[in-house]
Design a protein around this nucleic acid. Structure first.
Lengths: 347, 347
DNA sequence: CTGTTAGCGCCTTCAT
DNA sequence: ATGAAGGCGCTAACAG
């Protein structure tokens, strides 16, 4: 890779010349617009393939004097992690705009499929090139994704995937791996074995279910001396989670560890501290938020597994750009890594 | 952020009109070219500030029909991590080119300041906008960075920083935090305390020294029951590291843990497996490579702390772009997170 | 010292 | 169904 010959990239001019047509015709083919005979289109396709032509997205956006529009649908409510995602969108906004990508955001009621669906239905290809959604797995949503896709609006899933849908990309962590990681750490923290309680938000949430499955599998395979209590469901809600944890602590004086694979961490920390046993058991939770940070600092939480909201937004934007160039395929993106945070490597 | 009014970004035309000058004059001011009276320049500056004008980098690169040139200097030798960095550069190359950023790379002898210096000295602002180097802390290098900077070539440090230099950005992890993280994990893995040996490449390497410092401090503060053996230096070299580890294992039958904060992991794994005690002690190493992956899988290594070479290259490129827009300041980049890998979350 | 002009790669009227 | 021409934001000759 030292001092190579620079081959100029092929341009629309090159394609036009090679195909023996005009710029306008090439453009029509490139953008799938009508008004080109099949034979002519074929000649252009040939030239494109032959020259390995790929359109310059920046020039393209500049020429049509129109930004790429990406719309984020982020759940609203009391989930701090969703707020981090929303902030990440805001933080990226000016930077994206400098590259002609216009970000907008709609906060929609959490776990309210109807609201999300109506939001998606309002989108048309003119006002939105790509919609990025965080959604639970509901048939109406799948249908809305499909419809949006047919209207020319690409849809990507964020945080929690919808595999059966027409979504183009999924941006998020491997939740099974996250569960296995939690198991692996917990197992090493408790070399003598013991009881570990598992708390979820709801097992109807795909990411939560995947985490649980991974956790169970890895504990079973590697740390047979550990007994799982639960899972119990706290519905990602502070009070309910606190009540569950309080009960667990009361019922199991010998509890060695606790894995909260959902949200509701404020309740978890409160219950732990109220019990006076904070620090006596190994605690693993998800998502770096003000609450879990405080928990790490105080010693109530040992490890937080995080999915890096800023990285997720960055990759979502990168994917949206890639899709703008070729909507027919899934865009390649850098994987989102599972962040593992202890008190000592807090960002 | 729902449906806001779109204010068109200011362009050079707007600036020219506001300042009462022509495009060419604005351009001269923007690019710091001569031929503008101080008063005129002042008017232009005013207009720029007033309109909040910021140049469109993509349009700029397109207009001058010239890619942004970023040159990476990556150490050559037997260090697998450096190979990962090199591969990351190769992987990003086509993607970067699509955005008019031309990546090139020179492999230079590891820890050979003279080679790096001569490479830097060959660079001029025409052939290279930004140089990204991995270097140990030597006065000649600092001088070369300074000289390059004065020739109009921005320099960034990667992996290991050179704080006193004219480098614009540092891309890499917080090595003190990495050492503290290792300590934190090791402490939790050995709840009864015990002996932990530390092996470094060389304490003359800034990143290694920082890791050691962090490790020591965090162990001392939180896990007083752990005794540190070492540090011993293996010079990032397989055979030497193997010999050191073999000796450590022989001398300390009760060794509970091992932290290799440098490279030479092939030697570490070999010595552990030869001793028959692989899996009996908790082992923490740095950088995800074929060797450390195998070590994680076999159980010889418990945890690998990683600095995500692909992410580092991505951020280096992002920073280079930002510097192209404003070379006078340090570019804002996403921080590189310390990856923590166990057998169960291997990518 | 300053302004005019053509053109980078692409898209979009408007003609033909 | 196809082409010619102008313009997006910026830069680089080339004139004055």
């Amino acid at each position: 890779m030292n001092e190579e010959i620079v081959k100029r990239r092929a341009t629309v001019h090159d394609v036009a010349r090679a195909a023996g047509v005009s710029l306008a015709t090439v453009d029509r083919v490139l953008n799938g617009r009508p008004g080109v005979r099949a034979v002519t289109a074929e000649k252009v396709e040939q030239a494109i393939a032959q020259l390995g032509f790929s359109r310059d997205l920046n020039a393209s956006l500049m020429a049509r004097a129109r930004d790429l529009n990406v719309v984020f649908f982020i759940p609203d409510g009391t989930n701090e992690f969703m707020d981090s995602l929303a902030e990440a969108v805001q933080r990226r906004s000016p930077l994206a705009l400098a590259d002609r990508i216009h970000l907008s955001m709609r906060r929609v009621k959490a776990l309210d499929a109807a609201g999300l669906v109506s939001g998606l239905n309002q989108l048309d290809a003119h006002s939105c090139d790509c919609a990025v959604i965080v959604s639970s797995d509901e048939p109406e949503v799948l249908a809305a994704i499909d419809a949006a896709h047919r209207r020319g609006v690409a849809v990507m899933t964020l945080v929690s995937d919808l595999p059966g849908s027409a979504r183009r990309n999924f941006i998020g962590i491997d939740n099974g791996a996250a569960g296995r990681t939690a198991a692996s750490l917990m197992g090493r923290f408790l070399p003598q074995g013991g009881k570990v309680a598992v708390v979820a938000g709801s097992l109807h949430l795909r990411d939560h279910a995947e985490r649980l499955e991974g956790f169970r599998a890895a504990l079973g395979a590697e740390f047979g001396a550990i007994e799982i209590i639960g899972p119990l469901e706290g519905h990602d809600e502070r009070t309910e989670t606190a009540a569950i944890i309080a009960r667990l602590l009361a019922d199991h004086a010998d509890l060695g560890g606790l894995y909260n694979l959902g949200a509701g961490n404020a309740g978890l920390v409160a219950a732990l501290e109220a019990s006076g046993r904070s620090g006596d058991l190994r605690v693993i939770a998800h998502e770096l938020t003000p609450t879990t940070r405080a928990g790490l600092r105080s010693g109530a939480i040992d490890v937080v597994l995080d999915q890096n909201p800023d990285g997720e937004i960055r990759e979502a934007i990168a994917a949206a750009r890639a899709l703008a160039l070729d909507a027919s395929r899934t865009a390649a993106t850098d994987p989102i890594e599972i962040g593992i945070f202890l008190r000592d490597n807090l960002r």
